[in-house]
Design a binder for these strands. Sequence first.
DNA 1: TCGTCTCACACTTTTGAATTGA
DNA 2: ATCAATTCAAAAGTGTGAGACG
Length: 550
Amino acid sequence: MLQDKGLSESEEAFRAPGPALGEASAANATTAPEPALAAPGLGRAALGSPPGSGADVAAATAAEQTIENIKVGLHEKELWKKFHEAGTEMIITKAGRRMFPSYKVKVTGMNPKTKYILLIDIVPADDHRYKFCDNKWMVAGKAEPAMPGRLYVHPDSPATGAHWMRQLVSFQKLKLTNNHLDPFGHIILNSMHKYQPRLHIVKADENNAFGSKNTAFCTHVFPETSFISVTSYQNHKITQLKIENNPFAKGFRGSDDSDLRVARLQSKEYPVISKSIMRQRLVSTQLSAKPDVSPLHGAHQALQHYQYENGAHMQFAAAEPQDLPLNTFPTQRDSSLFYHCLKRRDSARHLDLPCKRSYLEAPSSVGEDHYFRSPPPYDQQMLSPSYCSEVTPREACMYSGSGPEIAGVSGVDDLPPPPLSCNMWTSVSPYTNYSVQTMETVPYQPFPTHFTATTMMPRLPTISAQSSQPPGNTHFSVYNQLSQSQVRERGPTTSFPRERGLPPVCERKPPSPHLNAANEFLYSQSFSLSRESSLQYHSGVGTVENWTDG
DNA sequence: TCGTCTCACACTTTTGAATTGA
DNA sequence: ATCAATTCAAAAGTGTGAGACG
């Protein structure tokens, strides 16, 4: 056994020898494109705080400033780069598939005694659908409506800065699915779409919660972690990289002459080499004969610039605008940190986020029960004018567990109800300018008493040109699922995990309003975050102050 | 017909309970 | 009786490739 029993994910990861970490830091953040931090007319004043307010400065406690100082380094950055250069693909399956390389980071600069919550979301990198044609990825039309955003909260959350900094923080148990009705809380993606994982660090408050007036958070994005989701690998280079680097795929390793797969096939009296291997060998031969097949590596080719996420210019080479290279992923600044250090002006609510367990205890056996609703893909809006045009408040809707789950996704309305009747989708009143006040209109959601216990983030507003919802409707929902700590996850065809451990979610006692508020907060903050990161600023932040520009 | 998706399969690693020994 | 180390079977994570689907 590689890891000791009970090791947390972060501790597991820490044991793995890793190359140097690519790092995103606050220092780098300060070099972020100006619009992200200083959009005209949307500075402090717009956020409800007088410019240059002395009170603000005083309010920026040392604890808050640690957010500013937090640096995040991507583990196995070189490996990620390898994949990135080939055009990373991630398999998505109905049952959920892990990412490989897995998302692991080294965090420094935290206040050792302050508690933080680490979570990941995956947002569309653009509003295109792709196809793999002629050994390269090409735009194949408009993107499908974005799946309901989900967050993956690290199982150790909340934990002190000392805990997070002690070892690598691993999100390797995060799973991706293409099942729109996924009952396990995996992150739902559309196949053949490009996505960008984002790491959010949220400062928990004095009660292991967040959402009080001192809450702050920041977002880190590593461009090399972007990927195209697929149901089967398209690029043989990616297949080879996965086989070479993923221990679980060892069975497919082997040199040309001693290809295990071939040997196995032949041993079973299959007279021919597998089609895949033949194809891959053929392509390899072609590639070796055509070293410039990937426009990515052709420095002479025209560079196209793309605005991305926080306004950084993305560059990639392409012969034609529609003709994307293998690596079409944004080459964002190496350190892509977005600053979202927030102070709430209204401290009306205090959001309890009870520790799942002591962060000093032996790590929990919680599995994939750390998924929440995630922020929407606002990057899209930045990239596509069509998104910007529909950034309007949306009407409230309510979805029950027995009804269609996906409100903002076309074509899903006809789908049968999800197998788990305990899914609970709710909504909010019209979402005006993304203000905090709107958050307070969110009805209480069934919410596990445990922070990490199988609770999804509120569903994020569907703001998409392709949304089936009419403009003006803002949806968000809460999704509950069983804790993986109690039940090992099985495939969707097997019995549902609630058969063991906890009673069905729908039978649990009503959640604490504070916990619901936590959901709201995370939603609201993520929302604000997303809005800011993609659109720099928006007037709706309201009582949330961005204090990093001071 | 084509592109995409699903599923069973063989293989590997991981997990965790049972066993062993100090 | 306790604890750590070891063993081992089951579970989980891989890519493959045939076939289904729209």
